[in-house]
Computed example of a mutant assay.
Amino acid sequence: MPNPLTTPQTATTTLRAGRVRFRARVSVTPVGLVAIGGLVAAILLSVPPIIRAAGDARRTAD
């Protein structure tokens, strides 16, 4: 029996706009999804300090 954490999950989508068609397919393991989630969380948590620092820099420059 294969390990469920290493079994890839696959998603496919097709977008059509007039005569143009775009097909995308992604395959990722559950462990990869956890890694992607961690990266997204880190990015989202880093935004408020960056905005706060930019506001502080602007106030001191005025």
Rank of each mutant, 00 (worst) to 15 (best):
M1E: 10
M1V: 13
N3I: 04
N3D: 15
N3K: 06
P4I: 05
P4C: 06
P4L: 04
P4R: 04
L5I: 04
L5Y: 02
L5V: 04
L5Q: 08
L5M: 12
T6R: 06
T6S: 10
T6L: 09
T7C: 03
P8A: 08
P8F: 07
P8C: 05
P8H: 11
Q9P: 01
Q9E: 13
T10P: 03
T10N: 08
T10V: 15
A11Y: 15
A11R: 12
T12F: 05
T13Q: 15
T13Y: 12
T14K: 11
L15H: 11
R16N: 08
A17M: 09
A17G: 03
A17E: 11
G18K: 10
G18A: 08
G18Q: 11
R19G: 15
R19T: 14
R19D: 15
V20C: 04
V20F: 11
V20H: 13
R21A: 10
R21H: 03
R21C: 01
R21V: 13
R21T: 15
F22Y: 06
F22G: 00
F22D: 01
R23F: 04
A24D: 09
A24L: 13
A24T: 08
R25I: 06
R25E: 12
R25D: 07
R25G: 03
R25Y: 01
R25V: 11
V26P: 03
V26L: 11
V26S: 06
S27N: 02
S27Q: 10
V28Q: 08
T29R: 01
T29G: 00
V31P: 00
V31D: 05
G32Y: 02
G32H: 02
L33V: 03
L33S: 02
L33D: 01
V34G: 01
V34F: 06
A35W: 04
I36C: 00
G37D: 02
G37H: 00
G37W: 02
G38Q: 03
G38Y: 07
G38W: 09
L39F: 14
L39N: 08
L39H: 04
L39W: 06
L39P: 00
V40M: 10
V40T: 11
V40Q: 05
A41W: 08
A41L: 09
A41E: 01
A42Y: 04
I43W: 06
I43D: 03
L44R: 07
L44D: 07
L44V: 14
L45Y: 05
L45G: 03
V47I: 15
I50P: 00
I50Y: 08
I50E: 07
I51N: 02
I51A: 13
R52P: 00
R52H: 09
R52C: 02
R52Q: 13
A53N: 08
A54C: 04
A54Q: 13
G55L: 10
G55N: 07
D56T: 06
D56L: 14
A57N: 09
A57H: 06
A57E: 12
R59D: 15
T60W: 12
A61M: 14
A61F: 13
